[in-house]
Amino acid sequence: MDVKLKPIQEQVMVITGASSGIGLVTAKMAACQGACVVLAARNEADLQRAVEEIRAAGGRAVYRVADVSDPDQVERIADTAVREFGRVDSWVNNAAVAIYGRVMEVELRDMRRQFDVIYWGQVHGSRTAVPHLKRQGGALINVASALADRAIPLQGNYCAAKHALKAFTDALRMELEEEGAPVAVTLVKPGSIDTPLFDKAKTCLGVEPQPVPPVYAPEVVAEAILHCAQHATRDIITGGMGKMLSIANDFPRLADKYMEKTTFESQQTDKPVGDRPNNLYEPVAHDGGERGSNWTGRTKSTSLYTKAALHPEVTALAAVGLGVVAVALLGRRVGGGESDARIVDGVGPGAEHKLPSAGQLSTP
């Protein structure tokens, strides 16, 4: 059935993992556009700070401290939304934690904890949200990763959790559609995003981890989330190189060899970790705000691929433009000249022969 979703200014939106990164940026953006927002995370100080900033800007927001690995605490997030704003129109499952290390070196206890947050946390959120969304219609948005489509080394368990989340989300979507439930179920798959996730990661590498370029701003993902909250969307990859990484599954062994040569080094900085805390089991003193500190390179503020994917009319115009560029390139090559055409967002003329980089790595 066609699910009718409200404009964002009429919505009550719940966002988990909202104390930093993608979740925090999404909450602020939604509130700025008029939504009533319920922020949830483990770090109360950062949640309180975020809500105060939203209210100071004229927005409406409340928070609920919760560890999403506990289903009872997730239920209390919904209770807060209903008590304060009367209902839930969109629910965004976004909480995540990161671990870096070879699969055989990461402790099993840590691997289980990561699954508890990334996979079970979103299962708990989905099972809590769906009964509320069924009442008047709404959107369930699960934030996975481009790594839900393609695994990379040093984040094997993270990739496994995101793969599991993708399967869960796909199955839930089909079941709800079959029964005619008025719930749009979306899987958002961010590429490499500049957030504090890396700064708080538990790592066995001895040095600080980092996202791998091209790196996008969390606003790129937040914009996609808010679009999906208003327009039923099956899934969306944010970041052009995220799409290329997904396409790498068509050439699995070639992609394996490429990643073996590039992604071990590219996920590591040269900064020692020292004894800094991580947030695998407990929140750190400060979740880090919207952007991370480990990444010091260029952060892309927009993704033409994502805009095109969300707006088919733009895709049509882009196709015409690429056709013009292709004709121009062909003319230059026939004439013996060198082409100086640029690849935009990792997708475009000349991009099809390139192997995907690990540019779409961890999410929030």
Rank of each mutant, 00 (worst) to 15 (best):
T203Q: 08
A217I: 12
Y119F: 11
G137Y: 04
S145P: 03
N142S: 09
V183A: 10
Q114F: 01
S145T: 05
E179D: 10
G137A: 03
A171V: 13
A171I: 09
R234S: 13
K243H: 15
H231T: 01
G180F: 15
R150H: 15
Q155S: 14
A201W: 06
E219S: 10
V188E: 03
H163R: 14
K243Y: 15
E175I: 13
V221S: 11
Y216T: 13
S192R: 07
H124R: 09
D194W: 04
K202T: 11
L147D: 12
M241G: 09
A222V: 13
G156T: 08
V215P: 09
T169L: 06
R173A: 01
V117D: 06
A167G: 13
D170F: 08
L197R: 03
A171G: 11
T128E: 08
G137D: 06
D199C: 07
T128A: 06
P209T: 11
C228W: 00
I141P: 03
C159K: 14
K200G: 07
A171P: 02
A201Y: 05
H132G: 10
V215F: 05
G206F: 03
A161E: 07
V212E: 15
A171F: 02
A222E: 13
F198L: 05
V215S: 06
V212G: 15
L133Y: 03
F198W: 10
F168N: 11
R127M: 07
C228R: 02
E179Y: 02
L187V: 14
G206D: 00
E223V: 09
L133Q: 01
V220L: 05
L205F: 01
A171H: 04
K162D: 14
L165G: 01
K202G: 08
I118Q: 02
K189E: 15
T186Y: 04
N157H: 15
K162P: 14
E179G: 04
V123F: 13
A160V: 02
I236R: 12
V185G: 04
G121P: 02
Y119C: 00
E179A: 01
L187S: 12
F198E: 04
H163C: 10
P218D: 10
G191F: 03
T233C: 02
A148Y: 01
S126W: 00
K200D: 07
V215W: 00
Y158G: 00
A146H: 04
I193Q: 03
Q114N: 08
L176E: 06
K200C: 14
A139C: 07
Q122T: 04
P131D: 01
A148G: 13
K200A: 10
Y158V: 04
L205V: 08
A146F: 00
E175R: 06
A232H: 10
D116V: 00
V215M: 02
E177Y: 11
K200I: 11
G239T: 11
Y158H: 05
T203L: 07
L197C: 07
K189F: 04
G242R: 02
E175D: 14
G240I: 01
I118F: 08
G138L: 09
E219L: 00
P153S: 14
A164Q: 03
R173C: 06
D149V: 08
V221C: 08
E177V: 10
